[in-house]
Amino acid sequence: MNRRTKFFVAGGLGGVGLIVLLVAILGTGGVRGHLQDNYQRVSSNGDSIVYTSSSKPKAVYESIRSAVKPADVQVDPQGYFMRYSSDIVAVTASGTGSRIYIDDERRGYAHWFPFVAGYWGTGGGYGEGIRGGGPGAGK
């Protein structure tokens, strides 16, 4: 490999690396940006915003989850709850469509306390998450 080829390979690797880095940085707008771009805003109160969608909750949940991967998901017969680094998103039914709630972590935990208490934080009265786990005989 001569010197010119080495410079060519170095430039190619560096160029592709920069492109991937820029796409990674600019392509992650966060869950708030995704909701703002894709759903109709109904109301807001500080960091707490409510959106609506004509799609069913399952479709909305799958769309949000695929766009911005949550750290954890809890489900209940009444809705889907997604936890992000500083936000909590809830998707629940509203007529034939859906209603999407986004709050900061503290307020979201309080709003959806009956569904997430014991899983994402403290607070008694609704269990402390799953306690079982089988006999431990498996591999």
Binding site: A90, A110, H111, G123
Partner: peptide, 18 residues
């Protein structure tokens, strides 16, 4: 089944925090 946000006082009274 629809869900509505609970009042924040419920978590505060239960000592709940993330």
């Amino acid at each position: 089944m629809e869900a509505s946000p609970a009042p924040e006082t419920a978590a505060e009274s239960a000592g709940g925090a993330p």
